[in-house]
């Protein structure tokens, strides 16, 4: 992928700490995401990777640390997340399309009701994006008529249609049947090629290696290792990462 180390920092998380009651879910997590960079966060379940991602979209509150985005600290209480969320898109494991709305209305909800863009223009964009993910003919379908892979691709389009600067992917293939994983990962790979800034939480190791500019390995709420994909998958620096990777080998 592209080298991005010199690109400007888009999201700068520093010393982010979060408690669930007394349990520390995130412990001093610091991570700077550069423009056009693809960061993949790996780690065992419960390591805090999804929690960290959710913090970047204001779905969790943090108790300490800062998350700087365009000169503002999002970690402060009282942050108005609505404008931020229009610039940081998020895709969920369980798609969460709105079941009572057609694909068209799912895609127009944000652009029309949040961004107050003209319907015709938003629809043109949505049609273009659907074309790109190979679902141009599904505009009038309802979520129940789609396969899991199709739903997830629509969910990605729904986030893209807000024209975000950053995309967050939270285990977006974990709920999919194996044969549908590929079609979703291909879409994300395409986005990476077009220079979208992305933070991806996943369990797909092959995909992580192919898409990432940088691998971040988390365990027990902390970042243990940050590395290039090649080095991480061939000779990781830490024992924890070695142990984690050994579980994926037979």
């Amino acid at each position: 992928m592209t080298t991005t180390a010199n690109a400007p920092v888009l999201i700068d998380a520093a010393c982010v700490t979060k408690f669930y009651d007394t349990r520390k879910a995130l412990d001093n997590v610091s991570l700077a995401i550069h423009a056009k960079e693809v960061v993949v966060i790996l780690g065992p379940s419960g390591c805090g990777k999804s929690t960290f991602l959710r913090c970047l979209n204001g779905l969790e509150t943090v108790q300490a640390g800062s998350i700087r985005f365009h000169g503002r600290d999002l970690a402060r209480p009282g942050t108005d997340w609505r404008p931020v969320r229009q610039r940081i898109g998020m895709v969920f494991q369980s798609y969460e399309l709105f079941p009572h709305l057609s694909v068209r209305d799912n895609l127009l909800l944000g652009p029309v009701h949040v961004q107050k863009r003209p319907r015709a223009e938003a629809l043109r964009q949505a049609e273009g994006l659907l074309e790109r993910v190979g679902l141009a003919d599904r505009l009038d379908s309802f979520p129940r008529q789609l396969s899991g892979g199709q739903k997830q691709r629509i969910a990605i389009v729904r986030a893209l249609s807000m024209n975000p600067e950053v995309m967050l992917f939270d285990e977006v293939t974990a709920a999919l049947d194996p044969e549908m994983v590929r079609e979703v990962l291909d879409v994300i790979l395409g986005l990476a090629r077009n220079g979208m800034t992305m933070v991806i939480v996943t369990h797909e190791m092959g995909f992580a290696r192919a898409v990432a500019d940088r691998i971040v390995f988390m365990d027990e709420g902390r970042i243990c290792e940050t590395n290039t994909p090649v080095k991480f998958f061939t000779a990781p620096d830490t024992d924890r990462a070695k142990r984690f990777l050994s579980r994926f080998l037979y």
Binding site: N57, L59, W81, R85, Q86, E96, G110, H113, V114, Q115
Partner: peptide, 8 residues
Amino acid sequence: ESALSIGL
């Protein structure tokens, strides 16, 4: 959450 994430 999904509705929040698109800024509604």
